[in-house]
Every structure is written in C-alpha cells, then in structure tokens.
C-alpha cells in the first residue's frame, strides 16, 4: 500500500510534467496541423534559461523567491525561443506542403540539440538548488516532498491560467476560432499570424514551466534532455486525442502514472519503450485518442 501510494505520487508529478508539455504539442497541432518536433528543445532551452538566470543573478540561496525568479526566467526564455522559432522557421512555410514543415521542425530540433552542445557544452550541468527539498509530512508512511507539492501546485496553477486564457479571453476565443476555420478568421478581422505566434508563445511558456519543475526534482540538465520526455509527452497528447486540450492533460497524467507503475514493479529497462507501445495500442483501438473527435472532411 505504501509502495503503491509512493508510485502514485511520483506518477502524478511526472504526469503533470507530461501534461504541461503535451499541451504545447496539442495546441500547435490544433492550430497548424503540424507536429512541432522542436517543442522538446524549447523545453530544454527553458531549463537553460533558468540555469543562466540563476547564475547571472547569483541566486545561490534556496528560497521561494529565487524559485519564482528562476521560473520566470525559464518561462520568458522558452517563450522567446518559441516565438523566434515560429517566426523564422515555420512562418515562411505557412503555405507549403505539410511535409516541408515537418522536415523543418526536425531540422530546428536537431539544430538546438547540437547547437546546444556547442554553446552550453555536452556534459550535464548541475541545476542550482532554487528551493530546498524537504519532507513536509508523511501520508501512510510515505514522505511527501516539498518539490512534489510544488510541482503539483505550479502545474495546476499553470493549467488554470491556460484554461482561463483559452476559454475566457478574447485571444483564447480567437485561438479556438483559428484552429477550426483558419480560412474564415481573417474575414472576422483576426490576424492569424498573430494568433499562431501567440499559441507558440503560450505553449513554449508551459514548456518552460515544465523544465524548471523537472530540474528542481532531477537537478541535471543537458542539451539532449528534451528528447525522451518530449516523445513521451507527444504520445500523451495523441493518447488524449491530439488537438484536444483536456485530452492532453488526461493523457499526460495517465501516461505518467502508467510509466511509474511500470518502473516501480520491475521492467525499468523498458521504460523508454513504454510510451511507444501505448501509442501503437491507441492507434490500433482508438485512433482518435480519448477525447479526440474525427473531423469530417467536407466533400
């Protein structure tokens, strides 16, 4: 029981990370119909954003304030990177075949991975301790860590902010409109390019949040850190139904939990393969994912 609870808690924290990242994939897919392969690298850049913010501002004492500053640094940096990637790599290809955009996305992703190795160095770096981890209390004999609570809190807060933006603001309404009928929205006076940019910025900001949350729990960062987690999050997005925001969150949590149980009860060497096996099963039995809907093409 205690073991199970421990796995569940871990699963929820990794799941909330997946959820944050899956949202980025699903938002971009919803609005542009493309898989943004570079999203995992934006996440990586977020981690380095926080790293350098901490270094230049000399944040060496753990405190909530420093954590907040690091978080802001990551979010701003990731959002900026997302914005630039969209502007310089994807925007020129707005009217090109999908294949070209996908290839570009792959290119951007690799460029960041290896460019990162040149700029930041290929070796893992120790992420500064922005906040001291401690056992707050015990629940059925399993210790509850501060970092875990922080992960839950920050990711739920981010999800709250996101859903406010998407469902309650003018911009969010425009984003939803562009994702359904991009051909009609300009007639309503919506600037599609601006909305697409906005989507990238918001998705990237979430990736920045995820990066800091992961880094306070596993304080080692390197330029390839996004690869595995990015793939898993994408699978989470497909699992939940790509294009669906709720699906991404639910898919993220389910995948995180499943993965943790798998590691917890043996089979840890196959952890990386787990998400892909899930993906193939989903495609076989419910190809639209949990919350996805088939879009009827007008004939």
């Amino acid at each position: 029981m205690q073991e199970f609870l421990q796995h569940t808690l871990n699963g929820l924290s990794i799941g909330s990370i997946y959820a944050l990242l899956a949202l980025g994939y699903t938002m971009v897919y919803g609005i542009l119909g493309m898989i943004n392969f570079a999203h995992s690298e934006i996440y990586m850049m977020g981690a380095f954003g926080a790293f350098y913010t901490a270094r230049f501002l000399g944040l060496d004492t753990p405190s909530v304030l420093n954590f907040a500053i690091g978080l802001c640094g990551a979010v701003l940096f990731a959002a900026a990177v997302g914005f630039l990637v969209e502007k310089f790599a994807y925007k020129p290809l707005r009217n090109s075949p999908k294949m070209n955009v996908l290839i570009t996305a792959i290119g951007v992703s690799i460029l960041f991975q290896f460019g990162g190795q040149i700029i930041f160095g290929a070796d893992p770096k120790a992420f500064p301790t922005l906040i001291e981890d401690q056992n707050l209390f015990s629940l059925f004999d399993s210790p509850i860590h501060l970092t875990d609570l922080l992960i839950y809190f920050v990711s739920f807060a981010s999800l709250g902010i996101l859903s406010f933006i998407i469902f309650k603001t003018q911009t969010g309404r425009a984003m939803r409109a562009v994702s359904t009928r991009p051909d009609m929205t300009p007639l309503m006076g919506i600037n599609n390019n601006k909305i697409i940019s906005m989507t990238f910025v918001i998705g990237s900001a979430l990736a920045g949040v995820a990066a800091v949350l992961v880094s306070i729990k596993y304080p080692k960062i390197d330029p390839m850190m996004g690869v595995r987690i990015g793939m898993a999050s994408f699978v989470a997005a497909v699992f939940g139904g790509i294009g669906s925001l709720h699906g991404a969150v639910v898919g993220g949590f389910l995948l995180g939990l499943g993965e943790t149980y798998l590691i917890g009860y043996g089979a840890s060497t196959y952890k990386d393969a787990f998400s892909f096996v899930i993906l193939i099963i989903v495609l076989l039995y419910k190809p639209t994912g949990l919350f996805g809907t088939t879009r009827r093409e007008k004939i």
């Binding site: 493309m34 898989i35 999908k98 793939m231 196959y270 393969a273 993906l279 193939i280």
Partner: peptide, 23 residues
C-alpha cells in the same frame, strides 16, 4: 495501425519503432 487515419502518425510510429528496436 498507422494508415488507418490521416495525419503524420507514421512519423511518430516509425520514430517509436526505431526507439523500441534500439532498446
């Protein structure tokens, strides 16, 4: 499974295959 619906699923599925084979 990959060609049952439209979209770029084959990209991810093949990526997954490579990863599974490697593991």
């Amino acid at each position: 499974p990959s060609f049952r619906l439209k979209g770029d699923y084959i990209a991810i599925v093949t990526l997954g295959l490579a990863e599974i084979v490697r593991i």
